[in-house]
C-alpha cells in the first residue's frame, strides 16, 4: 500500500517531472524555433508588432525634460502630454509646459490626419492666442530640446520603408535591427533624417534604441529608452513602457532626458479634448 502509494506518488511525481521535462524540452526545442520565427519576421512585421505594443486609444504622460548642454549646464522643464489615436490611425496630441513658471501654459496641439498635411498650433500665453505653425517645423527642435517635433510623434508605418539587419544583443536583450527610410522626399524633408536605425526588443517589441542619420550618413542623434516597466494606471495598466528616454545629440554635443513621472493609458480622454479651445485654456 505504502509502496503503491509511494509508487503512485512516484508515478505522479514522475509524470509531473516528466511533464516539466517535456515542457522544458519543448521550450528548448521551441526557443530556437520561436527565435528563428522572430528572426524570420520581416522588418515591416517587426514594426507592426511594435505598433501593436504602442497602440492605445489615448494616453496621459507627466514628464520632466532635462536639457544638458556641452558645458553640463542643465535646464529643467515640466510637461504634460495627452494623446488620442483614432481607429484609422489619425492622431491628436496636446502638449503643455507646466514649469518653470515663465513658460507655464505654453502648449502645442498636433492633429495628424492620414496623408493630409498636419495641423499644428502653438499657444503662447503671453499672446493669448494660438498660432498655426508650418508642418515643416516638424524638423525643428521642440522648445530648445534635442527632440524635434517629429521625434515626439508616433511611428507612422505608412510613411516609412523598413529593412531588417542582423539581430543584435542590447543590454542583454535580443533585438531586431531595423532601418527605416522615409518613403517620400516630402517625408524626408519633413523629418530631416535620411534614415533611422532602430533596435526593437524581441521580448517586449519596444524600441530600445534609435540612431538618426542625416543625408551625409552622419549619426546626428541617438535615442535610448530605459526604465521599462508596466504602466500603473488607466484601462491599459500593465502595458510596458520606457519611463526614461535619453536623446544624445552628437551634432550639438548636448543631451535631453525625458523622465516620465506617470503614464496612464486608455483613460477615456474624449477627442474633444484636442481642440484649439482646449489649447487656449491652459
Amino acid at each position: 500500500m505504502v509502496t503503491r502509494r509511494k509508487c503512485v506518488c512516484t508515478t505522479q511525481g514522475g509524470l509531473r517531472h516528466l511533464g516539466l521535462v517535456v515542457w522544458l524540452a519543448g521550450l528548448v526545442v521551441a526557443m530556437p524555433a520561436v527565435s528563428q520565427a522572430q528572426s524570420e519576421l520581416s522588418a515591416r512585421a517587426v514594426m507592426e508588432r511594435n505598433d501593436e505594443q504602442m497602440r492605445v486609444r489615448d494616453g496621459i504622460y507627466e514628464l520632466e525634460m532635462r536639457i544638458v548642454d556641452a558645458s553640463g549646464r542643465e535646464t529643467v522643464r515640466g510637461l504634460r502630454r495627452e494623446a488620442y489615436r483614432s481607429t484609422d490611425q489619425d492622431e491628436w496630441s496636446l502638449l503643455r509646459f507646466q514649469s518653470p513658471a515663465d513658460v507655464e501654459g505654453t502648449g502645442l496641439l498636433s492633429i495628424e490626419k492620414g496623408e493630409a498635411q498636419d495641423d499644428v498650433y502653438l499657444y503662447l500665453p503671453a499672446l493669448r492666442k494660438s498660432r498655426r505653425i508650418s508642418g515643416r517645423n516638424n524638423r525643428d527642435y521642440f522648445m530648445g530640446s534635442d527632440f524635434t517635433y517629429k521625434d515626439l510623434r508616433s511611428e507612422r508605418l505608412k510613411a516609412n520603408r523598413y529593412e531588417r539587419l542582423p539581430d543584435e544583443m542590447l543590454d542583454g536583450e535580443l533585438c531586431a535591427r531595423i532601418v527605416a527610410y522615409p518613403t517620400t522626399d516630402a517625408e524626408r524633408d519633413e523629418s530631416g533624417y535620411e534614415r533611422r536605425e532602430l533596435w526593437v526588443s524581441q521580448t517586449t517589441w519596444l524600441v530600445l534604441k534609435t540612431e538618426f542619420y542625416d543625408e551625409h550618413g552622419e549619426n546626428l542623434k541617438t535615442l535610448t529608452a530605459t526604465d521599462i516597466r508596466p504602466v500603473q494606471s488607466g484601462d491599459d495598466a500593465g502595458k510596458l513602457r520606457a519611463h526614461e528616454l535619453l536623446m544624445v545629440n552628437h551634432d550639438r554635443e548636448r543631451r535631453t532626458v525625458l523622465e516620465f513621472d506617470a503614464i496612464s493609458l486608455n483613460t477615456g480622454l474624449p477627442k474633444s479634448r484636442f481642440t484649439k479651445r482646449a489649447l487656449e485654456r491652459p
Partner: peptide
C-alpha cells in the same frame, strides 16, 4: 519632481 496621479493636473502653486 513630485509624483502625481496621472489624472491630476500638476500646476505649480
Amino acid at each position: 519632481m513630485r509624483r502625481r496621479p496621472a489624472g491630476e493636473r500638476p500646476r505649480r502653486g
